[in-house]
């Protein structure tokens, strides 16, 4: 039987991994790509730079807490930040559907410009394509970013006993997009956490925190990020459900729809792996930032070399936290 691309191939879960490994990584094979990281680090004359690229197809293009433009800047900035790289330059290319109203495009572009300005990262090149009506959905944006690496981080640097921190409530982005798309009443209170993370990463680096590794839990949420890290470091992790911050409205929304908050996308969150001795200092620093007041230590790295993720449940039980599987919510970023 002929195989076809399904939406699950884009969900960030196990099928996406398979697609990347079997189609892209094997065709483009090289030393950088083999690491399968969110960004690749290259040595150029005078320094180490990280490069990353990301396409944004979120539907709807405006959602509470952000829009496709802000997301396109934050997403790429955050991929750089997760490599401890200071974002320096961005590119932006647009695929626009014929018939898109000008004011929508202008408002998306101005929110991109605003976010880029706030992050002091200039958009220095770009491209525009227009396709006939129906051949794309309103607007797709691709951004590429180059950043200056401040510290080399690898999953291999994680040690048993390290603490896992997160800088705030989970699941906000995915839930807000879903609520906006379905037109749920009261959807306005479910705001996306879409935010550039370089400022807080920089803060931790400046304070010389013993940062071992970090990863932004976007598609597939905390579950996917934790599982990827467990696999690549070879160590097992344990998360405590009770300690994972979540807003009351998000929790109710997930509960009603039967969604697992840990599986849902974030766009302004980072999982930090930090040496146990520095964990509390790091938590204090994070909590001093207004947007990270609900930062929390959510788990530990275990000595066990199985690469699994365990979850201590709120009810007092425990279970495995698996990689999310099906396409819970397509076109979330």
């Amino acid at each position: 039987m002929k195989e076809h691309i399904s939406l699950s191939h884009g969900s960030g879960g196990a099928l996406t991994q398979k697609l990347i490994r079997e189609i892209f990584a094997s065709a483009f094979d090289n030393a950088y790509l083999r690491k399968l990281d969110d960004a690749s680090v290259v040595e150029l004359r005078g320094g180490r730079y990280a490069m990353t690229t990301d396409s944004f197809v979120v539907d709807p293009i405006f959602f509470p807490g952000g829009d496709i433009g802000k997301l396109a800047v934050c997403g790429t900035v955050n991929d750089l930040a997760s490599c401890a790289a200071e974002p320096r330059y961005l590119s932006a290319s647009f695929v626009i559907e014929e018939g898109l109203p000008f004011d929508i495009l202008e408002s998306v572009v101005s929110s991109m410009a605003q976010e880029a300005r706030q992050q002091y990262v200039p958009i220095i090149t770009g491209d525009t394509k227009v396709v006939p009506r129906g051949k794309a959905d309103k607007l797709f944006i691709n951004t590429t970013g180059i950043g200056l690496v401040h510290k080399t981080l690898e999953a291999g640097m994680i040690r048993p006993g390290d603490k896992i921190l997160i800088n705030g409530p989970v699941a906000q982005h995915g839930v807000s997009v879903l609520a906006a798309r379905q037109g749920f009443e009261g959807g306005k209170s479910l705001k996306s956490d879409c935010k550039s993370l370089w400022p807080i990463v920089k803060l931790l680096l400046q304070e010389d925190i013993d940062l071992r590794f970090m990863r932004d839990p976007t598609r597939g949420g905390v579950s996917a990020a934790a599982n990827e890290i467990a696999q690549s470091s070879g160590l097992s992790l344990v998360l405590t459900e009770q300690k994972v911050p979540i807003t009351a409205s998000c929790k109710s929304f997930c509960e009603i729809l039967g969604l697992e908050p840990l599986d849902i996308a974030n766009e302004g969150k980072m999982l930090f792996f930090i040496g146990a001795r520095d964990a509390h200092r790091a938590l204090r620093i994070l909590k001093s930032v207004p947007s990270c007041r609900r930062a929390s230590v959510i788990g530990d790295v275990l000595p066990e070399r199985k690469g699994k993720v365990y979850l201590k449940t709120t009810a007092g039980g425990s279970r495995i936290l698996g990689m999310p599987v099906a396409e819970a919510l397509p076109r979330i970023c």
Binding site: E260, A315, G316, G317
Partner: peptide
């Protein structure tokens, strides 16, 4: 039952 880890209790 699986989600809350009841068998472990």
């Amino acid at each position: 039952i699986r989600r809350f880890g009841i068998p472990a209790m």
